[in-house]
């Protein structure tokens, strides 16, 4: 099954908010076992696309398949295979980190003993065990990201969808998360993540897609997209960035 179907397949996903197009028909095939980076400027539609891919936001058109299971027609099976860390969404943050993990584990129908064991390990590895019974609402931004990641990993999903996992985490934790994700992919898992950090994407990803203005502009393996240039150059070219000429914002340097 894994062989025939891509880990995540998006077909013609489209969404507009109050008449304003956020995503205009995205097709994407994420091969199983790949490390997939989704790039794009602010407001490109990354969060919207990923939300539609995991069943958080109903698309206006198109569909999403996880290892061949339709996310919108057969959500139970598809969601079982998915681990998700959405962006801009609160956690149940009036629970402590341990309670939150237990909640997520049981919600996924896991055996309590397994939850106990895995949660303890995750808290330990992610350096969250010290937080003890502090409520997640009182965590720092980086700690929240880490506990969110732990929740997504806990049930051992086949496909991980992460929205900006490296935002706000310190370099040590970032390295840690990179190692965890690399091991996860080496073990046969698939990771799809959005990021603004070119350096991380370049270091980790086997495949890259660049999204801008709600459509895919470049897609392929890292080598195909990058060619012989740096990923950042390609990105700036695709997105059509501008550099400050020094004329505007003169008042900043007084």
């Amino acid at each position: 099954m894994t062989g025939e179907h891509p880990a995540l397949a998006l077909r013609g996903l489209a969404k507009s908010f109050d008449g304003k197009v956020a995503v205009a028909g995205v097709d994407l095939d994420v091969p199983a076992g790949s490390f997939y980076g989704l790039l794009g400027p602010n407001g490109a539609g990354k969060t919207t696309t990923l939300s539609m891919a995991v069943g958080l936001l109903r698309p206006d058109a198109g569909g999403a398949w996880v290892l061949g299971h339709d996310v919108w027609a057969d959500p139970v099976t598809a969601k079982q295979l998915l681990g998700v860390m959405p962006d801009g969404v609160r956690l149940f943050d009036r629970l402590s980190g341990a309670e939150l993990l237990a909640y997520h584990g049981l919600l996924r129908g896991m055996d309590p003993a397994v939850v106990d064991q895995r949660a303890a390990e995750l808290l330990d590895v992610l350096a969250l065990a010290d937080a003890g019974r502090t409520l997640v609402v009182d965590y720092s931004a980086g700690m929240k990201k880490k506990i969110g990641l732990a929740c997504a990993l806990l049930h051992g999903p086949r496909v991980l969808v992460l929205d900006e996992p490296f935002e706000a985490v310190d370099p040590v934790s970032a390295a840690l998360i990179r190692d965890i994700l690399k091991r996860y992919v080496a073990g046969g898992g698939t990771v799809v993540f959005s990021s603004h950090v070119m350096e991380v994407v370049q270091r980790l990803c086997s495949h890259v897609a660049i999204l801008a203005g709600g459509t895919i502009k470049r897609v392929g393996t890292l080598e195909q997209v990058r060619g012989d240039r740096s990923l950042e150059d390609v990105f700036v070219e695709v997105v059509g960035g501008r550099t400050a000429t020094g004329e505007e914002l003169a008042w900043l340097s007084r």
Binding site: E99, A102, G105, G132, L135
Partner: peptide, 21 residues
């Protein structure tokens, strides 16, 4: 902030995470 204030530190957590929930 939206925080409910500092949590009382309750040391000596017994049992696994499930028991805590």
């Amino acid at each position: 902030a939206a925080s409910a204030g500092p949590t009382r530190a309750r040391p000596g957590v017994t049992g696994g995470v499930v028991a805590q929930l």
